[in-house]
């Protein structure tokens, strides 16, 4: 075996990954054969609306689904070459501690309300980096300074409810990066925040990514966050990947009709003032039913008869960069 000729495996390779969730009354498939990868130091944005499966796609392999949800997973999700789906619970916990950091949408739910911020932060550091309490305390203060919280020493003596939303999310990010991860998964980290604070958090994530050189997967529904932060974009619809490409390819030259519709639905500050609001007709499909053909067909303006026949695979978009893929044969064939 000649290991040296192989480059190091990328931080994240998702290959044919599906998730099926079972509840007593219904089974759904929120993630359906998704394939993509994240290179070292790259920021991937997974974009989708509610119910697109973007959160389950990223949380299920880490065993971070809500308690009481039974998930069947198929395919593979490799972190630096090791399949997360084949790991035991304790191996997975070790990876979550140091290899992969996680930032949650609601920082309050990730923090214990009755324990001081500093204590919660040092606890994880002690466990994951095997430092003494004194060392981890000073490390925690460093982390809080790193995420831009002024006066970290006194912040550590506070309880989560004494912090503002933006401060709490900064603490959440500090917890996410406390194990010095090579991959940070951030689930809607700015959704609960005001635009002014959102801008601060985006700047912070950008800065941390450069300083720590880690790869980031950011899960969001907001293209505004994507454009300022991401290198690569994956657009999800009904549990499937509908478009994948560099941030410029996808946001400036979107190929899939869903991506186009979604981008048009975001009003900008530059369109004429008397224009009407543009959106997509209808609503996403019910994932409890089997979806034949393209999941977006019922809402699509470009729909053809054969769109409903079988599910379209990801195709290379002509006259675009090589890595730009879209799951729409209609658009791809038009452009050739």
């Amino acid at each position: 075996m000649i290991r040296t000729t192989h480059p190091a495996p990328p931080p994240l390779e998702v290959d044919g990954f599906s998730v099926t969730l079972h509840t007593p009354n219904v089974s759904v498939r929120p993630v359906d054969r998704v394939t993509y990868s994240v290179e070292a130091g790259e920021v991937l944005a997974v974009v989708g609306e509610s119910g697109s499966g973007k959160t389950i796609l990223n949380m299920a392999p880490l065993d971070l689904l809500p308690v009481g949800v039974d998930a069947d997973m198929a395919g593979s999700v490799r972190f630096e070459g090791r399949d997360l789906l084949k790991m035991t619970a304790s191996e997975l916990e070790a990876v979550r501690g140091s290899g992969i950091g996680v930032v949650f949408q609601d920082p309050l739910s990730a923090l214990n309300p009755v324990r001081k911020v500093g204590r919660q932060l040092t606890e994880g550091i002690e466990r994951n980096l095997r430092l003494t309490p004194a060392q981890s305390e000073s490390r925690a203060a460093e982390l809080l300074a790193l995420v831009g919280l002024p006066d970290p020493k006194s912040r550590m003596q506070q309880y989560p409810h004494e912090l503002s939303g933006g401060q709490r999310q900064r603490v959440g990010i500090a917890m996410g990066i406390s194990g010095e991860p090579r991959l940070l998964i951030a689930d809607e980290p700015t959704t609960a925040l005001d635009v002014t604070v959102q801008a601060q958090i985006v700047e912070l994530l950008k800065d941390l990514q450069k300083r720590m050189g880690m790869a980031i997967v950011i899960i969001t529904h907001d293209f505004g966050v994507v454009s300022g932060l991401a290198d690569k974009v994956a657009v999800m619809y009904a549990g499937r990947l509908s478009e994948l490409g560099s941030v410029r390819d996808v946001l400036v030259g979107p190929a899939h009709p869903y991506t186009r519709g979604l981008l048009q639905s975001v009003p900008s500050l530059t369109v004429p003032m008397d224009t009407k609001f543009v959106g997509l007709p209808g609503q996403p499909p019910n994932l409890a039913h089997r979806i034949d053909g393209c999941a977006f067909a019922p809402r699509c303006a470009e729909v053809r008869a054969d769109c409903r026949g079988h599910r379209p695979g990801l195709l290379s978009v002509p006259r675009s960069s090589p890595g730009h893929l879209a799951a729409c044969p209609v658009v791809v064939n038009q452009n050739i």
């Binding site: 099926t20 079972h22 509840t23 007593p24 089974s27 498939r29 308690v67 009481g68 039974d70 069947d72 089997r290």
Partner: peptide, 23 residues
């Protein structure tokens, strides 16, 4: 406040889903 499904119920749901999807 329903608890997690029993193993029997879960395998039943899996079978039903398989039948629906592969039908």
């Amino acid at each position: 406040n329903p608890r997690a499904m029993s193993r029997r119920k879960l395998s039943l749901r899996r079978a039903i889903f398989k039948k629906e999807v592969e039908a």
